[in-house]
Design a protein around this nucleic acid. Sequence first.
DNA 1: TTTTAATATCGTAATATTGCGATATTAAAA
DNA 2: TTTTAATATCGCAATATTACGATATTAAAA
Lengths: 109, 109
Amino acid sequence: MGVTKTEIYKDEQNKLASLLKVLGHPARIAILQYIINQKACICNDLVEELGLAQATISQHLKELKNIGIIQGSIEGKSVCYCIEEKVWKQFQEEFNFFFNQDVKVDECC
Amino acid sequence: MGVTKTEIYKDEQNKLASLLKVLGHPARIAILQYIINQKACICNDLVEELGLAQATISQHLKELKNIGIIQGSIEGKSVCYCIEEKVWKQFQEEFNFFFNQDVKVDECC
DNA sequence: TTTTAATATCGTAATATTGCGATATTAAAA
DNA sequence: TTTTAATATCGCAATATTACGATATTAAAA
């Protein structure tokens, strides 16, 4: 027990859920907002901005990189992170497809 | 350690993240989709549809109820679940506000 | 009234996540 | 070449989540 049974769901459901799961942490929301506002930033900026340990920020950045929503490019001894526009737009579409559907309700409610 | 430091984030960030966290599980995505397609359903329908134990489905339904996105009304010995339209629309707005923002990228990327 | 059916809740085992100190890696600066 | 700065990774402790059997609760059916 304790393991999500991914086999029983459709690929689409697993994919959407795993994206939402990554975004479902306030640090990662804060990181995305900061990157969006500043256009780009380095890891240390986020350490100062958020007050989490460097190891923790680095870990959150890794998870965001894993889903492709941000990208890091080496810039001397630091790494410049920014939004990966193509992926951001893909996600917009997927989320809109799910959330912006029209919902009808039965008479029992 | 192991505890998310909610104090250091803005209320909005905590709120958005906690909604996304609830939606970030394939069972809960599947439940929402089933309810949307069928207009309404009872817990047992979902047990048969998804193949998870009744206790597990009940727990997921509880989490969806907690954020207000679904509603259950007693119907004899069963409970009829459906989407809470008002809340669904509120969430649409919040998600659109975040995800549908335009993103500019710095020259470093 | 007894039985049955549908759901909720409790307790628990397995696993996942979060956060951080310590350490490794890498590239610029001195 | 040595030092310094920025980041990544490892290992671990604390906590959270997931799933489920067992049991309680409630209302219809027999």
